Computed example of a mutant assay.
Amino acid sequence: MFVRSLSLGVAAAALLVGGAQAADLIIPTTPVAIYEPAGFDWEGLYAGVNVGGVFSGNGVNNLQPGTSQFSIGGAVGVNFIVADPILLGLEVQGDYVFQDGDDAGLFLALARVGAVVTDQVLVYAAGGVGVSSRSGAASSGIYALGGGVEFAVTDSVSVRGEVLGLGDFDGGDDFFENAKATVGVFYHF
């Protein structure tokens, strides 16, 4: 009888324990991310504005020689990370150059090759072709070669400084007749 009572007691305890576990409260939780990307995302479309100056030596066609002029402009481009940390990009720039009542426009299409030095810093070289234009004068083909440094200041905004040497295809003595230096603020989409 003792064995029978003991067996019934163990069976009852096993059933009660199973019922107690089923009554545990299940609280839904949000899973913790296994990987969170660090740093600024340099890839994708961006657009921004810049200010600076154009410094003339002999003068590219449509720019006054031997002067320094204020410029304001904008740029739109796209970046691709092809292999960490190498970046390739394409950019279109347009600048309005203020020249003593004879203002000019610079329009450039540039290719960029850079390196993401840290999560927040990009160093790049740029080169391309474009046109300089002025009202009442024929547009002139130009080329540009230079580079810059870009710093991320928020999750989608960067600040950059850029210097480009400018030359024209008219066969002048100097490889670069002008230089363009700008500082800009860019939004990355």
Rank of each mutant, 00 (worst) to 15 (best):
M1W: 10
V3P: 05
V3G: 14
R4A: 14
S7V: 09
S7I: 04
L8Q: 13
A12P: 06
A13M: 09
A13Q: 12
A13H: 08
V17N: 05
G18D: 04
G18S: 07
G19Y: 00
Q21L: 12
Q21E: 12
A22P: 07
D24C: 11
I26F: 11
T29V: 15
Y35N: 14
A38Y: 04
G44Y: 11
G44C: 09
G44V: 08
L45C: 04
G48N: 02
V51H: 07
G52S: 02
V54A: 07
F55V: 13
F55D: 10
S56Q: 11
N58Q: 07
N61G: 15
N62W: 00
L63S: 00
Q64F: 09
G66R: 12
T67P: 03
Q69L: 10
Q69R: 13
F70K: 03
S71W: 01
I72V: 15
G73D: 00
A75S: 14
V76M: 10
V76L: 15
I81D: 14
I81R: 15
D84N: 10
P85I: 05
I86E: 03
L88W: 08
G89S: 03
G89K: 03
L90T: 07
E91R: 07
V92F: 08
V92E: 03
Q93H: 12
D95R: 06
V97G: 08
F98D: 14
F98Q: 10
D102E: 14
A104W: 06
G105C: 10
L108P: 00
A109R: 04
A111Q: 10
G114Q: 11
G114E: 05
A115K: 09
V116K: 14
V117E: 01
D119L: 04
D119C: 02
D119S: 07
D119T: 05
Q120C: 02
V121G: 04
V121K: 06
Y124L: 02
A125P: 02
A126E: 11
A126K: 08
G127S: 09
G128C: 01
S132T: 10
S133M: 03
S135E: 15
G136A: 05
A137F: 12
A137M: 10
S139D: 15
I142R: 07
G148I: 03
G148L: 01
E150T: 10
E150P: 05
E150R: 14
F151E: 09
A152M: 05
A152Q: 04
V153A: 10
V153P: 07
D155C: 12
S156E: 13
S156H: 11
S156R: 11
V159T: 00
V159K: 01
R160A: 10
G161T: 09
D168N: 06
F169G: 11
F169R: 09
D173Q: 10
D174S: 12
F175H: 09
F175N: 07
F175T: 13
E177M: 02
E177H: 04
N178C: 02
N178H: 04
K180D: 05
A181I: 14
F186N: 09
